[in-house]
Simulated scan of single mutants.
Amino acid sequence: MTTVNADAATPTELNVLVRPLPDYPDAERAYSRSSSLLWRRSAGAVEILHPWTERTISDSVMVASLSELVELGVLSGQEQFEDAAVQMICSSAASEESAWRAYYLNSINELDNGTSPFSPVHRRARSLIAGHEVLEVGCCFGFFALACARDGHSVRACDISPGAIDLLTTASASLRIDVDACVGNALALPYPDDHVDTVTLIHLLEHLDVQDTTVAVTEALRVARHRVVIAVPFEEEPTEHFGHLLRLTEDDLRLWADRVDHAGAEIFTDHGGWLILTPHR
């Protein structure tokens, strides 16, 4: 691994350009190396070369390879990380349409077969669903929603990002996995009371301000008929490039359970923290 030149421009001042490795057959001599990527700073930009193809691109390899560049100081902050991620995905196949389809298919397959580091969280969350109808709040790309739909559930999903919802809607149609996705804010869910059996907030609350976490949990309880499933990471420090704002512990789960109106709560640890709430019905 190569250390960052202290005299170079800081990462936040640089544009990010991500390209597939085959375009640069002599790249070994001109670039520094992480375990899976090549990179260099040149002409006011960070250039990144990746080996991922339509067969190999997935969420787990994208996150792992770019997180290593964050550790090296090559990338900094959520905006740069997400910019690099989108470019990496889109350049992994001959067309953006093919690239996104491959990214989605490979990612949900890895989550399902256990080869993704996030698989244990998905497995536990899917095992906690009560009833047939599921709403994933803060779905981002919507891998969990798609997995639940593939399990046979009737699935809705919402996220505050219109771009994420567009990607999920396209992937749902392309993969023929039915998910009803819409733009929605976790603090004011666009659904009526008692709308679905289970509402999930999987690794969402760490992205919110402290005051907003209670609002989001209250909204989930309003919409859920039988269960609210909450999962959060336990981190030494919030991961900036993932957009995490809060460092959460079991004490925070207990505080949420104490602050909202419910008919029962269960708190446990399994690859992070879990809070399972039963609404009053």
Rank of each mutant, 00 (worst) to 15 (best):
N5D: 13
D112Q: 12
I177R: 06
A257T: 09
V63D: 03
Q78V: 10
F81R: 07
R227F: 06
A181V: 02
S174L: 13
V121N: 05
H203V: 11
I160Y: 15
P279H: 01
A216Y: 06
P25E: 09
L72V: 00
P162K: 08
T10R: 12
H262T: 05
S58P: 04
A181S: 06
L255C: 14
R55F: 05
D83E: 15
E236M: 11
F242K: 01
V18W: 09
C90W: 10
L49S: 02
S58R: 08
V179G: 04
F118G: 02
H203P: 00
L105Q: 15
E266D: 13
E54M: 07
P25C: 05
A84E: 02
S127F: 03
P192M: 13
E206W: 04
Y103L: 02
L105K: 12
R126L: 15
A43Y: 10
T218K: 04
A220K: 07
W274C: 07
A265N: 09
H280F: 09
C148S: 14
Q80H: 08
P233L: 01
L253Q: 05
R227A: 11
D194Y: 11
L66P: 06
A9K: 14
T3I: 14
H153E: 00
E266W: 06
L75V: 07
E206H: 07
T213F: 03
E236R: 09
I129N: 02
I267W: 03
S95L: 01
T218G: 12
R254H: 15
R101E: 15
I177V: 15
S76N: 08
R55T: 13
S92R: 06
V155P: 02
S172D: 04
A173Y: 10
P192L: 12
V18Q: 03
V63P: 00
